[in-house]
Design a binder for these strands. Sequence first.
DNA 1: TGTATTCATGAATTAAGGTTCACTATGGCA
DNA 2: TGCCATAGTGAACCTTAATTCATGAATACA
Lengths: 214, 214
Amino acid sequence: MAIAAVRLNQLVETKARILDAAREAVALSGWKDAQIALIAARAGVATGSVYRYFDSKADLYAQVLGLVSEREVAVVAAIVEAEGSASQCLVDAIYTFSVRAMRGRRLAYALIAEPCEPEIDAARLKYRAALADQIARLVRRGIANGEFVEIDANVAASCVTGAFMEALVGPLAPEAAPDSDAAKAIAQSIAGLAARMLFRHATPELTPVSRASA
Amino acid sequence: MAIAAVRLNQLVETKARILDAAREAVALSGWKDAQIALIAARAGVATGSVYRYFDSKADLYAQVLGLVSEREVAVVAAIVEAEGSASQCLVDAIYTFSVRAMRGRRLAYALIAEPCEPEIDAARLKYRAALADQIARLVRRGIANGEFVEIDANVAASCVTGAFMEALVGPLAPEAAPDSDAAKAIAQSIAGLAARMLFRHATPELTPVSRASA
DNA sequence: TGTATTCATGAATTAAGGTTCACTATGGCA
DNA sequence: TGCCATAGTGAACCTTAATTCATGAATACA
């Protein structure tokens, strides 16, 4: 039993290694290198082995995208849950998401904007929807306590999500390369703007200092 | 010379027929039917003939996307140029774009959100950029005359463009099917929200009646 | 009418990478 | 030690459309 567990661990580990290799490849040079043979080589396994862990290429990359997305969605979710005004949480969430994206720019670009296969495109839609869901919760809170204008929470969440995602496309593009300070400034503009959509009254401060390091 | 002109016309006409066929096919059932052989049949020419007019499949679809986009960008540009407050023009532009998109829902879905080949994805980015450029002009005007908050016009334009585009994804999806009235209501929500991002003061009326029929 | 040029045809070819599978290696177990 | 189940291997296979091209038809012009 103990040894069977070791064996199971190896399986889990190999799968993780393939997922990692795939993520790294995408983070390094985008979808053009998202080829089974290349990823297998990078993971140190044979091409065929990939198919012991994943049904298909689409499955593999959907899982890669899912893993990375989950992490980002979780970060946003944590900020959404945080205490404080809905307005401030919204600004923080967008700011943090943006800064993190620009920190891992190549991967973020691949996940958000880079032209890619239809299957990956489809997985992206889910990712965006998951993000929008988190934002929607925050929107409802803000509407409930009077901070935000009264509007359909899902429409509002889509608008907010679209706003900051689209605004990131330019800064994330490989030919752009804002340094850390520029990235923070961009993130602040984006967060301030996108959140303004919903504010009933004045704009809150755009200085999400504390949670920004998340 | 006279006859050469006739001949030239036929060439132009055939090319147009292929473009039309491609557009129709996409408008009918999306990118899955965007196949050279199918489009050729639909246009009433042989498969090989398509290659007398287009370098490649990617070229053909880039041109299809370009043609349709140009029209929409032109509509937006006209509203951007129109007299009146920048705020009102912004709301009108977004409203009109949204209503038009939902009127030609399947094609709009394909152009905006449907998972597709990387080459088409790439063409989409240009389309969005062109739209954002128009919005940016309006943003500059609004900033100049004090209607809008002072903010980088390009970032702002991206946010606005992203906001309404993303908000349209849901309503445009094939499984959704808002009727004409519902579509107008959605368009109004979107336009009102997206534009609010920029307003320095109060929200203007969300009743872009006159230009909405454009 | 003859001929050169251009255009159209669509079956055959190509390409590129995803997927399979017959075989081998490994490690647990009696 | 020998056997079995499970994991690994990677070259060969397939699939699916895009693309080509040898051939034929049509047109302009002398």
